[in-house]
Computed example of a mutant assay.
Amino acid sequence: MKLRKVTAASATALVIALTATACGGDSDSGDSGSGGGDKIKIGIKYDQPGLGLKEPDGSFSGFDVDVATYVAKELGYKPDQIEWVETKSADRENALARGDVKMIAATYSITDERKQKVDFAGPYLLAHQDLLVKADSDIKEGTDLNGKKLCSVTGSTSAQNVKDKIAPKAQLQQLGGYSECIAGLQSDQLDALTTDDAILAGFAAQDQYKGQFKLTGLKLSNENYGIGVKKGDTATVNKINDALEKMVSDGAWDKAVKDNFGPANYKNEPAPKIGQIVQ
């Protein structure tokens, strides 16, 4: 067999090609959505027990985390290939537009206004605005809040929503965070806390709060939680929807609900149908 002579120029070209190939396979953006050695960046909340929480040891827990981990697995990513990125509510649309994250699972309600800026997969959970009260409270419905102290976080419209619709004489108290409202409930400085029932259940399910609080089942609004992706990324939306349907069918969705909300006796809605938005 006659061997072909390799010139210095061709050898140099071969080295350059191999180097470029190696560099190209080391991306950590997760934009390909195919796994296979890449990383994927997923936006979550860091401060919502039961949904998205950064634990003291640096790990992450919560229903949103479990859903996102399952979806990532179906997209080809192992848990150690996920980079969790704290994504605050006010920055979610910008984080997707900038490409900071591939997707966001962070109690992200699907609304017409948001759909102008991002695309959504799901919904994967139907939540409702509710009330959290002490376990021995006689507050059973919204009208019982007249003359009572109702807490929500600064900037939220939840407490005002209750006052406008069902309890005009409620005394609104806005604090910096849900933990402050919970502390007020414990000490009887406040009578109720209002926001999405999933968020309330997440707090009530924590070890230090077990048995102390209950949800009233107010259902003042419908919050369809979806997974946000960059506007126009239809391929990723379709892959996530397929993953969510599989998560429901194989029982992993029900397990995630029980694991994260069970101790709060959260009466969750059945898993919503993909693309079915409850108004």
Rank of each mutant, 00 (worst) to 15 (best):
R114W: 04
D31W: 03
S27D: 12
G50R: 08
D31K: 05
Q81G: 06
L126I: 07
G122A: 07
F120R: 07
A68V: 03
I44L: 09
K45V: 10
R98A: 13
G33A: 13
T19I: 15
S89C: 01
Y108N: 14
G122K: 08
A121C: 07
K41E: 05
V85I: 15
D47C: 05
E113A: 14
P79N: 06
T87S: 15
G52L: 06
P56V: 15
Q81T: 03
A20K: 03
S109L: 09
M103Y: 08
I110S: 08
R98T: 10
I110Q: 09
A22N: 00
L75N: 11
I44D: 04
K54P: 06
G50C: 14
L53W: 12
K88G: 06
D64Q: 06
K41Q: 13
K88F: 05
E55T: 10
D57Q: 01
L96E: 05
R114K: 11
D38V: 00
M103G: 10
T19R: 04
I110G: 02
S27Q: 10
C23L: 14
E55C: 04
T21Q: 04
E113C: 01
K88C: 01
Q116R: 06
R92C: 11
G62C: 09
Q116K: 15
P123L: 07
Y46W: 14
Y46K: 11
K41T: 06
A121L: 11
T21K: 09
K45A: 14
T111H: 14
L126D: 03
S59E: 01
L126E: 10
L125R: 01
K45W: 14
S27H: 04
D64H: 02
K102S: 06
I110E: 08
S27N: 06
A20Y: 01
K115N: 05
T12H: 02
D66R: 10
A72G: 06
D31M: 12
P123W: 00
Y108T: 02
F63K: 05
D38Y: 04
A105S: 07
S27I: 05
T21F: 15
F60R: 05
I16T: 11
V67W: 07
E83S: 13
V71R: 12
Y46I: 04
K45C: 10
S61V: 14
K41C: 09
E74K: 15
G24H: 15
D26I: 01
A106G: 11
A17K: 03
D80P: 05
F60W: 09
